[in-house]
Nucleic acid binder design. Structure first.
Length: 293
DNA sequence: AATGAGGCCTGGTTGC
DNA sequence: TGCAACCAGGCCTCAT
């Protein structure tokens, strides 16, 4: 499940393999993969052919490749990996993946870029770069996405204030990409556990200290995941596929139902949450008396 | 305006 | 054994 650390690993891989390369051929194998490019697959391809990739950027879970320049109004290829999306660098001639959705070939005839996505929640599209609401030059659909904790311009106190302005449960607020971006279900649960807070705690009752604790924990756990994920892929495998090495060893609560809490030994509990699951330690993270539903 | 629920997807797993 | 139900979950759309 690509969240911020996984997407950052992909971004770094793309920066290593596709920068300064000129696109000469684009194939869209599945129209759904470019559904957010409203002008259609043919237009998507036409806008890329002849362009040179000049930057690999990321905000939260969104990733984009700048084309030719990084000025306002210039285009970028926006990628969202969704649940199962992968960006792969593949030697030309290697067999197609079962769920290959988009292929890009380059003028240098070197390795091609493939977007592979089993569940097609993700996709690619081309957009002009605009000023984001919170600052920075981003593709238009990313304008409403908040800065993430790894952004040098991330403002922790502003993010805490954003959390406390919400009228909802803390975990819902953490997953809301307009308050702070990059956090998904896995790192939300890990951050809440580290901060010893329950996700159904109402945001309006959150102290500034608690807000800093949970966002600080989110930044820390994602930084650790990035370190782990950044070491476990070979040169041509851009996607680390969920930081597989990290998942096994370092997750304290996510997916650990009935296993002992690493801090106190109490069995971790799994509860339904928004058509998915939340994992908590019932002792370290007691449910508040006034839980947000 | 802000919040929350539903829907989109497919392969692996679980249960009858 | 075979098949159906369930599960993973980010994000967009729509309703309240």
């Amino acid at each position: 499940m690509p969240e911020l650390p996984e997407v950052e690993v992909v971004r770094r891989g793309l920066a290593d393999h596709v920068l300064d390369r000129k696109i000469t051929e684009v194939t869209v194998a599945h129209p759904r993969a470019v559904r957010r490019h409203v002008e259609g697959a043919a237009d998507f391809a036409a806008r890329l052919i002849g362009r040179t990739i000049s930057g690999a950027r990321r905000r939260g879970k969104y990733l984009w490749l700048e084309l030719d320049a990084a000025d306002e109004g210039e285009d970028a290829v926006l990628a969202h990996l969704g649940m199962s999306g992968q960006m792969l660098i593949a030697e030309a001639g290697r067999a197609d993946e079962t769920h290959l959705r988009v292929r890009m070939r380059f003028a240098d005839a070197g390795p091609e870029l493939r977007f592979v996505d089993q569940r097609t929640f993700g996709g690619l599209s081309v957009h002009p770069l605009i000023q984001a609401h919170g600052g920075g030059l981003v593709p238009a659909p990313v304008a409403h996405i908040a800065r993430d904790p790894m952004d040098p311009a991330f403002d922790l106190d502003e993010a805490v204030a954003g959390l406390r302005r919400r009228r909802t449960g803390l975990k819902r607020a953490l997953l809301d990409q307009t308050v702070v971006s990059g956090i998904g279900n896995i790192y939300a649960d890990e951050a809440l556990w580290r901060a010893r807070l329950h996700g159904s705690r109402p945001t309006e009752g959150l102290t500034r200290g608690q807000g800093r604790a949970v966002l600080g924990a989110a930044a820390a756990v994602m930084a650790e995941a990035l370190t782990a994920g950044g070491t476990s892929f070979d040169a041509l495998y851009v996607n680390v596929n969920g930081a597989s090495g990290y998942f096994d060893r370092a997750l304290a609560v996510y997916g650990q139902a009935d296993r002992p809490c690493p801090r106190c030994g109490t069995p971790i509990r799994r509860d339904p949450f928004m058509n998915r699951s939340s994992y908590t330690c019932p002792r370290c993270q007691p449910r508040p008396r006034n839980p947000h539903p």
